[in-house]
Computed example of a mutant assay.
Amino acid sequence: MSQAKSDPRQDMLPCRLAGMEALAGAEQLALFTVEPASGEPIPPFQAGQYTTVAFEQGSDVAMRYYSIASGPEQAQSWQFFIRKPDKPGATGELFDMEPGSPLWVGQAGGAFTLERSSLPHRVFVANGTGLAPFLSMSRHLRAQAEQGSVASGKLTLLHGVCRPQDLACRSELEAIADNSKLDFLYLPCISRPQEEDVDSSFSHGRVEEVLMHLLNLPGCGDSRPVKLAANHSLDTLRQRMPAGETALFLCGATDMVKAVVAQVESSPWGDGLVYEKYW
């Protein structure tokens, strides 16, 4: 006789969907806020970690792993940055849920954290929703700076998207960059720029190609030329990421991560690569 299948929710925290914030102009992208049903603070976690979210899907229980986008200091809820898939799936179901819908959240895990590298400078490289752990890290570093604990070294965030409207939390990241206590630079990279995308803070090109240009390494295969943001000089940007002193944190599409690793691992920046291998 086969044993009854155990319910994965028995070891998870009962929660509810507190809200969804769709990105303007990007119907497939949203920030979801989830809070404990009890109203108590969430369990502690480290910036950059992920967790499991479960919900009922008919007679089954669907489970997905999401990087946490909120900082550890946001003690009352988690935030997740999610793209709705083109085909039906569990992730897409979240977009159809009403506030208050029941969810279950597991214990945070993963080693993709700031502590993975002791090098003085950090470059965060993301495309799409791979931004989520870097949102958490950036929010955490801002909170620490406001409390008087300022991160040493330079922090540079490269976020690659197809269109400017896909840039999640742009105003918040720009505000963090304006924080005089942090040496933080935010560099949005637009891979499919249109004529109207003339913002001087945008770099044009796939994020991996922009990174290779900054490191003065061979490109990853995209023949389109990289155009750096007009408000930053190439020399100034390169000074932020010296070889042997810079950790390169990667998160996003598998193809992007693989391409960067292939070009960087044997370079002077190779010892500073930090990424999660999930393929």
Results as ranks from 00 to 15, higher is better:
Pro44Ser: 12
His159Thr: 10
Leu237Gly: 02
Asn179Asp: 15
Leu215Lys: 01
Ser101Gln: 10
Thr113Lys: 08
Ser223Tyr: 05
Ser2Lys: 10
Ala37Trp: 04
Pro36Ser: 13
Asp60Ala: 14
Ala18Ile: 12
Glu209Ala: 05
Ser233Leu: 03
Phe32Trp: 08
Phe81Pro: 00
Lys227Glu: 12
Leu135Ile: 06
Gly71Arg: 13
Lys181Val: 03
Ile42Thr: 04
Pro8Glu: 06
Gln10Asn: 13
Arg238Lys: 12
Glu208Phe: 07
Ser117Thr: 14
Cys189Glu: 06
Ala75Pro: 09
Ser203Pro: 12
Glu21Leu: 11
Gln144His: 11
Asp271Trp: 01
Asp178Ala: 14
Thr113Gln: 10
Val210Gly: 01
Ala247Trp: 08
Ala126Pro: 00
Leu157Ser: 02
Met12Thr: 13
Val260Gln: 02
Trp269Lys: 00
Tyr65Thr: 14
Met63Val: 13
Glu196Lys: 15
Leu103Tyr: 04
Val125Met: 12
Phe45Met: 05
Glu276Ala: 07
Val207Ser: 01
Phe249Leu: 11
Pro218Tyr: 05
Lys5Ile: 14
Phe80Gly: 01
Trp78Gly: 05
Asp183Met: 13
Leu187Lys: 05
Leu167Asn: 00
Asn216Arg: 14
Thr156Cys: 06
Tyr50Pro: 00
Pro88Leu: 11
Ala90His: 07
Glu174Pro: 03
Ser201Val: 10
Gly89Met: 12
Ser70Pro: 00
Leu182Phe: 08
Pro41Cys: 11
Gln107Ile: 12
Val264Met: 04
Leu248Tyr: 04
Val264Ser: 00
Glu98Asp: 13
Leu94Gly: 00
Gly58Glu: 07
Ser266Leu: 08
Phe112Gly: 01
Asp11Cys: 10
Arg16Phe: 14
Cys251Trp: 07
Leu237Tyr: 06
Pro44Asp: 12
Gln49Ala: 07
Arg139Gly: 01
Met20Val: 15
Lys258Arg: 14
Leu217Asn: 07
Glu208Val: 03
Gln263Thr: 09
Trp78Ala: 04
